[in-house]
């Protein structure tokens, strides 16, 4: 029996480590490549660890592309989009969870129905509308569609429904308006779920590609993924440059992840509730 336990333990660490290695090798390869000189990229056999460590790629990256600007853009867009998405969804969720009126369920069903519409269907008309409004290549245009987030609304509503009505009724008797109740009672009680949603929204926006690619056309407006894909088009074979850019784009979200792994996990597993 003890024999079997040790075997299980060995088996666990073996499998866990193999998978971890497979996951980490590409990252290791990225870091190693980003520290190579151009000439060291195409050697045979490959250099797992660069013979000569060089920051050439990092210097060039900021020279050929306003990469510092892209980092700032990504931060701005991710923070603002998260704020817009969460505020709008939380406000709607409050109505659907706590304020009864005729036709409420029908409107809510309409919100939920939008979850079935793939973004690729709406992106062309959305692009055209923003074009006619003169909002192409602006952050406003980029962020406007995030006003509607059916998934976030749904998750928050489910959560707010578990808050006892007694709290609200007590506040109403005290003469509180819905605005006060929302701000002083509902939001504080929803903090954990708001944090989880905020973190995955931030991550999703930070990493988002297709929509920003369509909307942002000038280099000084680009977010990191769009900038990186442009670099990929222009310097497709200068892998030290591309890997340096990729690494820089990962670091901020990685730091966030290390500090808030719990909320990341919670946020990611929200994806499992949809079914």
């Amino acid at each position: 029996m003890i024999h079997k336990k040790i075997l299980g333990k060995i088996f666990f660490y073996l499998i866990a480590s193999i998978i971890a290695m497979v996951i980490l090798i590409p990252f290791f390869w990225m870091i190693s490549t980003s520290l190579k000189e151009k000439g060291a990229l195409m050697t045979i056999p490959i250099q797992w660890i660069p013979d000569k460590v060089s920051f050439e790629a990092y210097q060039k990256l900021f020279k050929v592309f306003p990469f510092g600007r892209s980092i700032l853009n990504s931060f701005y867009v991710a923070v603002m989009t998260t704020f817009i998405t969460i505020s709008s969804a939380a406000m709607a969720a409050y109505v659907f969870a706590k304020i009864e009126f005729k036709g409420r369920e029908k409107i809510f069903a309409l919100y939920l129905a939008t979850m079935m519409i793939p973004g690729q269907v709406t992106m062309i008309p959305n692009f055209l509308v923003l074009k006619y409004m003169g909002l192409l290549n602006t952050f406003t245009g980029l962020m406007l569609p995030s006003l509607i987030n059916a998934f976030g609304t749904f998750i928050l509503r489910q959560n707010m429904m578990t808050i006892p009505n007694d709290y609200i009724e007590a506040a109403v008797i005290d003469g509180a308006s819905h605005f006060t109740i929302f701000y002083k009672v509902i939001l504080p009680l929803s903090k954990p779920i708001l944090a989880a949603l905020a973190i995955i929204t931030f991550m999703g926006t930070w990493n988002s590609y297709l929509w920003p690619l369509i909307i942002l056309t000038s280099k000084d407006k680009m977010t990191l993924p769009v900038g990186l894909s442009l670099l990929n088009g222009q310097y497709g074979s200068q892998y030290n440059l591309l890997m340096a850019g990729g690494l820089i784009s990962i670091i901020p979200i990685l730091i966030m992840f290390l500090f808030a792994q719990k909320y990341f996990e919670k946020g990611l597993s929200l994806g499992g509730i949809k079914g």
Binding site: A20, F27, T33, I46, I250, L268
Partner: peptide, 26 residues
């Protein structure tokens, strides 16, 4: 934590890495 790193990485960065990882000669 290790298994989640690719999940939090953007697809663009991930695809760039893999384009290079899969390079036939190098």
């Amino acid at each position: 934590a290790i298994y989640y790193i690719p999940v939090i990485t953007s697809w663009v960065a991930g695809a760039l890495i893999w384009k290079w990882v899969l390079n036939p000669q190098h």
